[in-house]
Nucleic acid binder design. Structure first.
Length: 207
DNA sequence: TTCAGGATGTACT
DNA sequence: GTACATCCTGAAC
């Protein structure tokens, strides 16, 4: 299946965060593709962004993947419990990434419900359905992504992005019309002037 | 429908 | 020891 090439991760991180909206994320789990539409992202730019783990080129064992070549995963543990998936961007040496905050499940949804809640789709209540993949920790749990996927190549066979549903191995599906929302990032109140950077992007259905 | 509080472990003062 | 790019539960409205 056709993956986004590495050049799609090399450019400006904020631009990439916006352009990843509406693309398709594929995670191959036990031989089965789990496919989602990307609906919410945030940009983190180490050279000048106090919210970024690698602010001011701060280089530690944890932030090392951010300095690596683009098109790889950066996965870290937050609050002791939850994994968050990022796409490493910009040329090697520029520590920056796009955080995945929200997805729409398209294929393999039953498997994702099992991974996230340990029960079938039909057993979920309305609250669980409404809050299925609307947060970075939730996305990783439903896709069975943990720190074993840190530095995973996004051009490999286990985790990758596509432009269209057919590239992702799906039949043609109805794609709704969306508008792009822009706003402040979540959960970075410590980041001083960077708290106001409008670097969060999301898709909202029109009409 | 919103809210406060607790869970939990790693990174780095 | 402190902070953290979060999520869930239960109680109040």
């Amino acid at each position: 299946m056709a993956r986004l090439s590495r050049q799609f991760y090399e450019g400006d991180t904020v631009e990439i965060a916006r352009q990843r909206l509406g693309r398709y994320l594929v995670r191959v789990y036990k031989g089965q593709p789990l496919v989602c539409r990307i609906v919410e992202t945030e940009a983190y730019v180490g050279r000048m962004d106090k919210a970024c783990h690698a602010y001011n080129y701060r280089r530690t064992p944890r932030t090392e993947p951010l300095f690596g070549p683009p098109g790889h995963a950066y996965i870290y543990l937050i609050y002791g419990m939850y994994a968050c998936l990022n796409f490493v961007t910009e040329p090697k040496g520029e520590p920056s990434a796009v955080l995945l905050r929200g997805l729409e499940p398209l294929y393999g949804t039953e498997q994702m419900a099992q991974l996230r809640f340990g029960r079938s789709l039909a057993e979920l209540n309305t609250y669980q359905r409404k809050n299925f993949l609307n947060g970075p920790g939730k996305c990783c749990k439903a896709l069975s992504l943990d720190r074993n996927f840190n530095q995973e190549d996004l051009l490999g066979d286990r985790l990758y992005l596509c432009t269209s549903p057919t590239d992702a191995g799906l039949p043609e599906i109805f794609t709704p019309s969306y508008a792009i929302g822009t706003g402040r990032r979540i959960g970075i109140d410590y980041a001083e002037e960077a708290v106001d950077f409008p670097w969060r992007f999301w898709l909202e259905k029109k009409g």
